[in-house]
């Protein structure tokens, strides 16, 4: 893991913590960006953590590019020795897998897919060595995920599953991106899951849909009334499978303000997780069940 710095024009510094994805790289990125945010440095305009990298947008008239670079390198050396622990929250996200809406959409764009004969889930299950879509869905929802980046479009979380490298699910993106994806589709591309916050173009495989809105520009939904974007990098997500009836009930209750996502505050220690992934995950999910 070797950090690489590059100027993105005169207003950005792009920092690649590692070329490949890992929890270590994500943790390093989030700890440097958190430290930079706390520093409140004049001239820093945007601090954007990503999966295994991050980016800073700054005003070179206030802080010179070389000075900005120096600041980041100093923060990096401090991050190396810092404890890899964060206080965060675990959120339960209900998902209706194999729903009719993403199914209708995937049929419409079948010619852009690697395997036009089946569904996105059938394909993902097969190439990951699962006997059935159900077995794949089980692997998908039984272990939690880290929100490793929020972006692409407004409020869209990228998630990386908290399992060892050899258990990671991997699925290529569509051969050619779709021009349409239903709002709140749960998708998958590379080693990342995502939730499409708005309807629009997309290239990730589509597995299901959540009745839980995660972006609300009107700030009228009960749990989005303080801020329109639900997710932050560092959040932990546990998907829970639901059926049609439950989906429709939650959707109706969101409208009346009666439904809110289940959330528990937790702390996450990377060393503890690395020593015992399954045990650490079980504790996270217990905290959620108790909430």
């Amino acid at each position: 893991m070797k950090t690489r710095y590059s100027f993105g024009g005169d207003e950005h510094i792009f920092v690649e913590v590692d070329e490949e994805m890992s929890l270590d790289a994500f943790f390093k990125a989030i700890s440097i960006t958190t430290a930079l945010r706390e520093k409140n440095l004049a001239g820093v305009a945007e601090i954007c953590p990503a999966n295994a990298s991050f980016q800073v947008k700054y005003d070179p008239d206030v802080i010179a590019p070389d000075k900005m670079l120096e600041e980041l390198k100093a923060l990096e050396s401090r991050a190396e020795s810092a404890a890899k622990t964060i206080t965060t929250r675990i959120v339960e996200v209900p998902v209706y897998f194999q729903d009719p809406w993403t199914h209708e959409t995937l049929m419409r764009f079948r010619e852009r897919h690697q395997d036009p004969s089946g569904s996105d889930l059938d394909y993902a299950a097969r190439i990951n060595g699962y006997d059935s879509a159900e077995a794949f869905v089980e692997a998908f929802h039984s272990q939690p995920w880290f929100v490793s980046m929020v972006g692409f479009v407004a409020g869209l979380p990228f998630m990386y599953q908290l399992v060892e490298r050899e258990k990671q699910l991997q699925v290529p993106k569509y051969l050619r991106p779709r021009t349409d994806t239903p709002k709140q589709t749960v998708g998958y591309g590379g080693c990342f899951s995502c939730i499409y916050s708005v309807r629009g173009a997309g290239g990730y495989q589509m597995f299901g849909i959540t009745p839980m809105p995660i972006f609300d520009p009107t700030e009228t939904i009960s749990y989005l009334s303080d801020f329109m974007v639900f997710f932050n990098p560092g959040d932990i997500v546990k998907f829970t499978p639901i059926g049609r009836e439950e989906h429709d009930r939650i959707e109706a209750d969101v409208k009346t303000g009666a439904w809110r996502p289940r959330i528990a505050e937790v702390s996450f220690d990377l060393a503890a997780w690395t020593a015992d992934p399954a045990g650490t995950n079980a504790k996270l999910m217990e905290a959620l069940d108790a909430a």
Binding site: G9, H12, F14, M21, N51, F54, Q55, R165
Partner: peptide
Amino acid sequence: FGAGSDPSNIVDGCYP
């Protein structure tokens, strides 16, 4: 790891 199969793919990152 995590970047995807095309030589133009990276592990999803920020765009300036």
